[in-house]
């Protein structure tokens, strides 16, 4: 496998390692994806009074708990990065697994939350607010799931002291997912 990696990958004319550079470009492209849907949401939210009434039916406490979960998992991810930088792959893998646990907990809580809302009759087609609510949070949840899957792969490698630089890269991505939620939380739950 290692012979497949070209010399191009090892060069660093910009002064940044290739992986870190690419992750920031990924994040740049993700900013505009989430930016597009949140910009649309804000326009509708400001134009329609009904959004505030609908938003009152969301559960702020569940949203706050999920924010807490993601912030904590971010802490674990950055600890994994620190461990990887000091060369301790096993420790990095352990922290990455904690982060994954946070991601899984986030998804579980979200499932219960959505189930209860759908049970009360608020589905994706109920009104524009609920359409945005499920679409934006769903898009974010997809990123959480993808992050967890990638993180398990990176952790498995880190455990064997391979590709430790990837611990940082998945961490940066994970923090970005966290930042998106930091903005989604007030937009969807608090602005009533």
């Amino acid at each position: 496998m290692s012979s497949a990696r070209p010399i191009a990958t090892t060069r660093s004319a910009s002064g940044m390692p290739t992986g870190r550079l690419a992750v920031w470009w990924v994040i740049a492209s993700e900013i505009v994806i989430f930016g597009g849907i949140l910009t649309s949401y804000v326009m509708y939210r400001l134009a329609h009074d009904s959004f505030a009434e609908q938003a009152a039916h969301t559960n702020t406490w569940i949203g706050a708990f999920n924010t807490f979960v993601l912030l904590t998992s971010s802490l674990m991810a950055v600890q994994a990065h620190k461990a990887a930088d000091s060369g301790d792959g096993a420790k990095a893998a352990r922290f990455l697994h904690y982060t994954c646990l946070g991601g899984i907990l986030f998804i579980l809580v979200k499932s219960f939350e959505w189930a209860s809302e759908i049970g009360r009759g608020y589905t994706i087609s109920s009104s524009p607010f609920w359409s945005f609510y499920y679409t934006a949070a769903g898009l974010h949840a997809l990123h959480v799931i993808a992050g967890v899957v990638i993180m398990f792969i990176v952790a498995a490698a880190a455990k064997q002291y391979r590709d430790l630089h990837r611990v940082e890269l998945i961490g940066v991505y994970w923090h970005f997912v966290d930042v998106v939620w930091i903005f989604l939380f007030p937009l969807l739950y608090i602005a009533k």
Partner: peptide, 9 residues
């Protein structure tokens, strides 16, 4: 596998 990814600059 991560040849140079962290050492280069």
């Amino acid at each position: 596998e991560n040849a140079g990814n962290e050492t280069h600059g």
